[in-house]
Design a binder for these strands. Structure first.
Lengths: 261, 261
DNA sequence: AATTTATTTCAACGTTTGATGAAACGCAAG
DNA sequence: CTTGCGTTTCATCAAACGTTGAAATAAATT
């Protein structure tokens, strides 16, 4: 087991990580990976088995250490708040910080890994295998923490809120460069610090609005579900399209609360 | 031009749509598409050109009519609110309703198309081509409406807020079934009505929190950026992990507003 | 130094890939 | 009927695919 072998295996995994992140599992051939790594084709099978195994290895390699840190961070913020529940912001941050931080520090490897996760998360073919296998235990832990922080919330609302957060987070990591073009350069996909500042309050506000015991959605699932659903859907009605508040945003939040929730 | 030809082409496009949505562009072969459509391989090239063209055609086929409806809906809610700006909820709904509604009505074709969009949106390889080409003009229109509805908001905050909405929306359409397993059956990926009720208020709350003129993020980009950023990042501090409010959610919203924004 | 083990190279396997040219078909118009 | 055109079938192309033995080399162990 010379050190050559170890570095060869690492080169293969790094090359695979990069190419898988760029073009997905099916978009990359084993031969391309070997070429990118600068090794013979047969060495891929020798060190990493079949293509499926290689993919799983690439995925697992970082997922494990990442989730460990996320759980530690959750435990830390729980302990700091004990015996009370941590704030929503602290929980969401424990969920996103380990990702955004690594990425923002410019680690190319981690960035590629996260881009890969983004693709897997949105793939009907791969998500049931990859995401469920590597992330669901962690997510269950976070859901439990969120449940404590949101007393009186309905289960569906918590899960859907988490789902929206997951979507926002993964699209961010995809780093497709789309927001760059869209904003004419005002925003940059690679500027994860900017995301960091914004995603936590954005998601927290969404959670509170949706998971409030008095929320309209909660009421909607009761007796008068239909009309409530129409309102929630933003059906164009007199009440819904009325003038946007012009006296500051705090007021807007409360108005909206009164109106919708 | 016998009617056989028209139905053949349609069968090919439908088959391609289904398979592309399931396994992505590279995960499907032209021969599989032909088999699924029940036609000879050569007919795919004959009717739809090369694989790339076929993919674009599948994408374009529904994107055009969809975006037309979205723009009409935006115009309608703008007109209904004139001369004032429509509410945030109405704008976001005009953006999401045409998608969620078609999907919720159970159209298998549309569902597949949206699943395809979700994959493209999260693909560094395909997003710059597909999403930018077909959706950016529409998105610019919505950004403009959002800007009007959020006076005093910073450009970056609007774009990032839109980005988060886009991520939440596309992950929903991916319909990977993950939330089903995660929630133990409490939520169903296919239940787009439930999403419909929840995504609009969730996103609207996020927009308001982030795009408020008095928001912390806005302040953070000023002089005391560092400490503000730390707070936004939810760094575990005394202030951040303090007890969650126990007297209802509305109170929680206001507390949080005071604390973070 | 000799022997064993780990790693790398080379060549090849059977399949599948995207794409196309030539021939055969169906069918309406002249 | 037959000419012409849109459509379909069939056969085939070179290239790339994932994977694997067997030989060659490097490294570690005795």
């Amino acid at each position: 087991m010379g050190k050559t072998a170890a570095s060869t295996r690492k080169r293969i995994l790094d090359a695979a990580e990069k190419l898988f992140a760029d073009r997905g599992f099916h978009g990359v051939s084993v031969r391309e990976i070997a070429r990118e790594a600068g090794v013979d084709v047969a060495l891929v099978s020798y060190h990493c088995g079949r293509k499926n195994d290689l993919f799983e290895t690439v995925f697992l390699r970082r997922a494990e250490m990442l989730n460990e840190e996320r759980l530690q961070m959750l435990a830390a913020c729980r302990q700091a708040a004990a015996p009370d529940s941590p704030t929503l912001e602290a929980i969401i941050d424990a969920f996103t910080h380990p990702l955004l931080n690594r990425s923002a520090r410019g680690s190319a490897g981690w960035k590629r890994f996260f881009a890969l996760v983004a693709q897997v998360n949105n793939s009907p073919e791969l998500a049931p295998i990859g995401m469920t296998k590597f992330f669901d235990p962690l997510v269950q832990e976070f859901i439990a923490a969120l449940r404590e922080a949101l007393p009186g919330a309905r289960e569906e609302d918590i899960y859907w809120s988490y789902h929206f957060l997951s979507g926002a987070l993964t699209l961010t990591f995809a780093e497709t460069g789309r927001i760059d073009k869209l904003s004419g350069g005002v925003c940059r996909s690679s500027d994860l610090d900017s995301v960091h500042e914004r995603l936590v309050p954005y998601a927290a506000a969404g959670f509170r609005r949706l998971c409030a015991p008095s929320s309209e959605v909660a009421k909607a699932s009761g007796k008068s579900a239909k009309s409530a659903a129409n309102k929630a859907r933003g059906k164009v009605t007199k009440a819904n399209v009325r003038k946007a508040p012009d006296r500051g945003a705090k007021r807007a939040v409360r108005k909206s609360s009164a109106q919708i929730s």
